[in-house]
Simulated assay, not measured.
Amino acid sequence: MALDRWIALVLLGVCLIYGYTAWFTMDADLAPFMRRNPIWPSTFPKVLSVLGAVAALVILLGLEGPQKPPKAGDIDYRRLGDYKIGQAALLLGLMVGYALLLRPAGFLVSTTSFLILGSVILGERNWPVMIGVAVVATGAIWYLVQEVLGIFLRPLPMFMGV
């Protein structure tokens, strides 16, 4: 089986699990007044799970139409070693680390560190610009979420007591 069909099979499994969660478990704890609403919190996940499952089935069953020859810029799964898989894996690891450190390290520290390390992984070496952009972007996002939207984000690490 081709790589695209294996990926479609994995995505179909993810969509089925996501759909089961959306259809059967998300709405169990709804307040009584919300049960009469036409749109529930699970409406968008239900739509996503159905559309994702249909798209995965189209690819899995080969219904997407005739195959076109690959173009010069297309990814060739037979040459995956030629691509920068290490950079992609490092970025994925950095994203996981960011998610794990967001609460204990605080938004400002973890987001600034994520942006700086991510740009280093991608090859940026202009340190003043890199640090400046990371600090300004992190501060602007924190201000918009905290002050404008009113959503609390722990700005500093937990041991600082904020």
Rank of each mutant, 00 (worst) to 15 (best):
V54I: 12
F33P: 01
G73E: 11
L102V: 08
P32E: 03
G81L: 12
L90C: 00
L91E: 00
S119N: 11
I121R: 13
L115I: 10
G13E: 04
L9F: 15
K68M: 05
C15A: 13
P45Q: 01
A28I: 11
S42E: 10
A31W: 13
P41D: 04
G118R: 14
L9K: 09
G81R: 15
L9A: 13
Y98A: 04
S113A: 14
L92M: 13
E64H: 13
I85E: 03
G73F: 15
F114N: 01
L100W: 15
L57F: 03
K46D: 00
A53M: 06
G118N: 09
P69F: 09
P38N: 12
L108A: 01
Y18P: 03
S119E: 09
I39S: 10
K68S: 08
D29Q: 11
T21W: 15
G118I: 04
D4M: 11
G97T: 12
G86R: 13
V96F: 14
G52I: 03
D27W: 07
V120G: 03
T111N: 01
I17C: 09
Q87W: 09
R5T: 04
G52L: 01
E64Y: 10
R5D: 01
W23I: 01
V50L: 09
L51M: 10
D74C: 07
T112H: 08
L51W: 07
L100A: 12
L122E: 02
I39G: 02
L108I: 09
S113D: 05
G62Y: 12
R36K: 14
L115P: 14
V96I: 15
T21D: 08
K46H: 10
V54M: 05
M95G: 04
I17R: 08
D4I: 12
